[in-house]
Design a protein around this nucleic acid. Structure first.
Lengths: 355, 355
DNA sequence: GTGAAAGCGCTAACAT
DNA sequence: ATGTTAGCGCTTTCAC
């Protein structure tokens, strides 16, 4: 047989007899095989059901042999519980999110929950995805790195299904929110910089309408004001990205700030690259740089970025625990978890460590 | 400002009257409301069914009004199609994967498919997840960044559901595989380095038992041999990570290679950092560095990494197209898509561009 | 083109 | 402890 280019079929002996497709065994079939009722099969597969250990063992063994697996889709039709959690994510150009996603999915899996991933393209709102989530009968939804309108948040609560926002909050939340204490973190940064003598301070904004950006900006500005220092410069940001940080640094450079607080790490990294490689400014000698998140790159020797570490593990744990509880005991009130971050000093600010 | 303890409840007026939970409307209810049969509702929501445009419009309008949404779980119970694709992923420390995941989910969504994400912890095999996938009645499975045993691959084929491996291949594949041409890419790198006069060449291996690592190593070694140059040094790798690349560079440094090919970009970046910041070696003057993937950081001015760009978009498109086809026309034979990569010259090799 | 009826594979009363 | 019987909310024959 001739082997075509890409997309070719495999050699004959591979396709000629493809392994026979075997229809999945159903509970009814397994029951007949064992001479028991179908509900017995069902019972063998659920905890807290009255079935003799002997019978359960017998069923499970036969199930193994006949390769029976309960159809969880069918199960969820009758239990009205899918054990599926919808996860809504926007673009993952910020390395913080893949990390979070990974931990989240892992934690959910550990308590028997699966993650159905919904991607919200830049520009689109989470709102547009929620009806779809609902169609898929997700038991709950976790929204990360994306905004949701308060109207939609309110609408969701009528479904009786828990929702949790990670790393974002919605103003008049009827929805549970979990985030780092952005405001306090930003205040710490302000103090940190002022204490080291920096005076020409700049802030580079991330996506303007996000709670993270708003809170960090506010904390930073307020603390500056409290200490009688005014913001030297501010760049109105567009998004939380390397490119945006890079661009902002270029705009900032001629104003000669002595320290710049970028709304998050990936922007700060972009900014450092611009300062060093395009503006011939040294970090931290000519300009100090601070970020927020503590992504892996922040600790790389090329950057050594002073930043506020987000309590990622704690945030994920809080989210998952909330879901676990709420799915068990129907409706607890919405909560607001705010977990403090940790300022990490590194060499992107003077005194932060060795270059 | 004082931040209350984590997990506090909201103010009373928020919890006192939570929006009444409204049970979702079913097709039967909508039907009664309209005085039509339930099957009419069903028909209004599917293409290729005989229903008058007028009736369909009437139904859809009422559905909108009553907020009726078809329950896709129930639908899939009768159609035996869940429109859910299982995506199996291992750890995402390699930035290449979040990018791939994002594009994949996006592409699937565009053709009406949802992604159920399964995470395989390091050390565990994909094999352990497949039964679970099956229970969730996924229509197909995409396996990325993870290994699957040929036995399991074979077992999966008996389900009659398509499976596709991205960026990995399994030896005696009965399963469709999509990947970059790793071997040719590695050969190009060999040629590129030799042509520029490098002679003390080293290879840093990634996760040893992965197809990507094996193919890249083979291509590189073979081309060297063909051109009569022997490998100056090789580091037996453990995993595809920044830390592993960093460590490998340290081990390599004293042997003074003049060029190092790291199994992928994230390793190369780690390696560059080690060379520069820990070994006081300049890149590319003292040692040239090459990677594979073309992750975003490869083009950052701090690295400017010469690498082979993986055709990510093409790979995702091929995967999704294969799924779309195969889900329509039951069983096509397995395919092997190998898409060429593109060598990108940057400043981590002499002659590759400005520092 | 529309309605009636029979499932899809399971769980959950209700019996026994 | 186990069997019987209704559904869960849809799709899909089969009639008309």
């Amino acid at each position: 047989m001739s082997v075509a280019a890409a997309g070719r079929r495999m050699a004959d002996d591979e396709t000629a007899r493809p392994p026979a497709v075997v229809k999945p065994v159903t509970a009814r079939e397994l029951a007949r095989h064992l001479g028991v009722s179908q509900s017995t099969i069902s019972r063998a597969f659920s905890r807290h059901t009255s079935i003799s250990p002997a019978m359960r063992a017998r069923v499970l063994q036969a199930a193994e042999a006949l390769r029976y697996q309960p159809n969880v889709i069918a199960r969820s039709l009758s239990t009205r519980r899918s054990n599926i959690i919808g996860i809504v994510m926007a673009t993952m150009t910020n390395p913080f999110y893949p990390e979070m996603l990974e931990q989240l999915v892992k934690a959910l899996q550990q308590i028997g929950l699966q993650a159905l991933l919904f991607y919200v393209p830049p520009g689109k709102e989470v709102d547009s995805e929620l009806p779809l989530l609902l169609q898929y009968q997700v038991d709950a939804v976790v929204i990360a790195s994306a905004n949701i309108s308060s109207a939609m948040a309110r609408a969701w609560t009528t479904t009786g299904r828990p929702a949790v926002l990670i790393n974002r909050s919605v103003p008049e939340a009827g929805v549970t929110t979990i985030s780092c204490d952005n405001e306090v973190g930003a205040r710490q940064i302000a103090d940190y910089l002022l204490d080291r003598g920096y005076r020409r301070l700049a802030y580079v904004s991330g996506k303007p309408d996000t709670s993270t950006n708003i809170e960090r900006a506010r904390g930073f500005r307020e603390r500056l004001r409290e200490r009688g220092v005014s913001l030297h410069a501010e760049i109105a940001g567009t998004e939380f990205s390397y490119a945006a940080g890079y661009q902002a640094a270029l705009e900032l450079a001629r104003g000669r700030p002595d320290a710049v607080f970028f709304a998050n790490d990936i922007m700060a990294v972009g900014g450092m690259d611009a300062f060093r490689h395009e503006c011939a400014m040294r970090v931290p000698e000519d300009v100090a740089v601070v970020g927020f998140d503590d992504i892996p790159m922040a600790s790389w020797p090329s950057y050594r970025l002073t930043t506020v570490q987000q309590p990622l593990a704690g945030m994920v744990a809080a989210a998952v625990q909330f879901l676990a509880e709420t799915l068990k005991q129907p409706v607890a009130g919405p909560r607001k978890h705010i977990i403090p971050g940790t300022l990490i000093e590194r060499a992107s600010t003077i005194g932060g460590g060795p270059r």
